[in-house]
């Protein structure tokens, strides 16, 4: 047994393909990105001019859009943590309590938006929130709230909030599923013991379920913030950062810098900072929440 599990060749053959994929799509591009980040290049394949750290100083000290993108990502992450996750936890507990066929049915239904393509979701919500034929405004009119009718994604004051709603809608199922799995993992005798102590209802769950879910919660919160930082497709396909940068995100910003504004070198410098931000935030959150599961 021991000999088989020490087989060097087998270990190499098992790990090499995975690492090769990893190097091809993560390591090599990051190195290349690092190189381009010190240059002034219009597009891939055009002449390259070395400019040292000037892209980085420009971004960090003079580029308001970069900081705005970061702020938007953090606001979105805060929205996930404060609004989406408590709802997911609440629904996970209620699903577990309802039991029987209903438990299975509703669990299936609540997950459906998660299997819809981001392109469909984005275009669908563009239509839902459309100021001329969108269903959101029609519903408001039909319940007598015409005053609230609005170009939801076209107005700088509501664009980010609308985006948050779309993302909460489409991501609700995954969050619910992870918390539900966590709730199911809590042994029944924990509840028995608490009931004997006289706890019930809300108090029971606040004192027993939520603390026992804390390992799941810490992983989920880290993932929520990372998801907010990585946000791209929905923004790209709905507002593309506008109006007036109110929904600007790092990924959208760097994409447009590279392919629309022909600032390939500058965009790569944003990429490098983007990766650093993601890794630093993961590290800090892991330290803060003393999370062991995603520790590096």
């Amino acid at each position: 047994m021991h000999k088989v599990l020490n087989d060097r060749l087998a270990i190499f053959l098992f790990v090499f393909p995975g690492l090769a994929f990893f190097v091809l799509t993560f390591v090599a591009p990051i190195i290349l990105s690092g190189y381009y980040s010190f240059t002034e290049t219009l597009a891939p394949g055009t002449p390259v001019k070395m400019v040292g750290f000037s892209n980085f100083t420009e971004i960090l000290f003079h580029d308001e859009r970069f900081w705005l993108s970061l702020r938007n990502a953090l606001l979105l992450g805060l929205g996930f943590v404060v609004i989406q996750h408590p709802i997911c936890i609440l629904f996970a507990i209620m699903l577990d309590r309802i039991g029987g066929k209903a438990e299975k049915w509703f669990r299936t239904i609540f997950f459906i938006p998660c299997v819809i393509s981001v392109v469909v979701i984005s275009r669908m919500w563009l239509s839902v929130l459309d100021p001329t034929f969108g269903i959101a405004n029609k519903v408001l009119a039909s319940i007598g709230l015409s005053d609230l009718q609005h170009a939801w994604l076209g107005d700088a004051s509501t664009a980010l909030g609308s985006l948050l709603s779309i993302l909460i809608w489409s991501g609700f199922g995954w969050g619910l599923l992870f918390y539900y799995a966590g709730v199911k993992g809590i042994p029944a005798d924990m509840y028995e013991a608490a009931r004997l102590d006289g706890a019930s209802g809300f108090k029971l769950h606040w004192r027993i379920t939520v603390p026992l879910l804390s390992p799941v919660i810490t992983v989920q919160i880290t993932l929520a913030v990372i998801t907010a930082l990585k946000q791209m497709e929905t923004v790209f396909l709905t507002t593309n950062g506008g109006p007036g940068d109110s929904t600007q995100f790092l990924a959208v910003y760097l994409y447009n810098q590279a392919f629309s504004a022909s600032n390939y070198g500058y965009a790569n410098a944003i990429s490098i900072l983007f990766i650093l931000v993601c890794l630093i935030i993961t590290f800090v959150l892991n330290k803060l929440t003393k999370n062991k599961n995603l520790d590096f």
């Binding site: 990893f22 799509t25 990105s33 990585k230 994409y255 990429s271 990766i275 993601c278 890794l279």
Partner: peptide, 16 residues
């Protein structure tokens, strides 16, 4: 290292 792949944004590797 492999788990880092979950955290690294693919959008940052799109250009290179």
């Amino acid at each position: 290292v492999i788990l880092l792949g979950i955290m690294i944004p693919i959008h940052a590797t799109l250009l290179p």
